[in-house]
Design a protein around this nucleic acid. Structure first.
Lengths: 150, 150
DNA sequence: CTTTCTTGGTAGCATGTTGCAACCGTTGTG
DNA sequence: CACAACGGTTGCAACATGCTACCAAGAAAG
């Protein structure tokens, strides 16, 4: 078989995450979910994705525990897709991607969407990787350990 | 044409980021780069990816300004791939994905690799999304604004 | 210097995945 | 009841992925 390579049994957490959400559409679906989209049609219009692809992605995300299919909140017979706690935990990932995009793919003054603190309308603080005692860490300040079975 | 949909002209920074690194291999290549891999063969052995795919991905990452091709550091005639500043700026993204994976895809006690503070060997602090004045923010505490051209 | 091994690819093929358009049953609306 | 909107499914063509074989340049051994 020539199936896509899977990383779901890797011992690296990054690999398992990528396996779950590392395709072109999944992260954007999750982004839209954070932004309030719930219905199939909302995702479809917002993303411009083909319906069969969206169907497949939603199914994978539900199977992976990122989204959950629940009865529609407006009382209609349709269903909605909402983030599970596991899906909500992707918030820092989305914010990190957003900040990286803002800082590297937009000319100064170029229009873009922006995530703001709802209470005050301010931009968010830039994410920082911190040590256990709160020092900011650069990539060079870190190293990868193997944690064996206990 | 039935080419892959591109997001590089989206006004959403998340979409542009996904366009640059949102495929199955790119993020893992970047992860390995953070972990010290520099040579074609290192990436290939570490990832188990087909060489033609790796060639294509490295080329895209170099074209996208995430990696840079430089003369080998050991004086040989080969070349190496190192992170640019733009690539290094992906550090919070990788850390966020790693923490999400650790917390959601591993049973307690299951072996996994772990990123630690080099100086003290401790685990890192969990990434937090903060408001401008330092309050921790949940997804519901934020909203998306449009910033028009200035 | 010549043989051999390593490195870093390319080429071709089979299969999988994506995008598109057409279609369709169910649900909501006038 | 008629008609539109919703949420898909199906079939097809094009593209991407994975695999294997191959290959040229560089390094290493003798």
């Amino acid at each position: 078989m020539v199936t896509r390579t899977r990383f779901d049994d890797s011992e690296c957490p990054v690999a398992r995450s990528v396996d779950a959400i590392g395709d072109w559409w999944s992260l954007l679906i999750v982004r839209d979910a954070f932004d309030g989209s719930r219905r199939f049609g909302e995702f479809q219009r917002s993303l411009g994705v083909a319906k069969n692809i969206l169907t497949a992605r939603l199914r994978t995300l539900v199977a992976g525990g990122v989204l959950e299919s629940v009865p529609a909140s407006d009382g209609s017979a349709y269903r909605e897709y909402v983030l599970t706690p596991k899906g909500e935990a992707l918030f820092p990932v989305i914010v990190a991607l957003r900040q990286w995009g803002e800082q590297n793919f937009f000319a100064p003054g170029e229009p873009h969407s922006e995530l703001v603190d709802r209470r005050q309308g301010n931009r968010l603080r830039t994410l920082e990787v911190l040590s256990a005692d709160g020092r900011p860490l650069n990539p060079d300040d870190t190293t990868v350990h193997k944690v064996s079975a206990q």
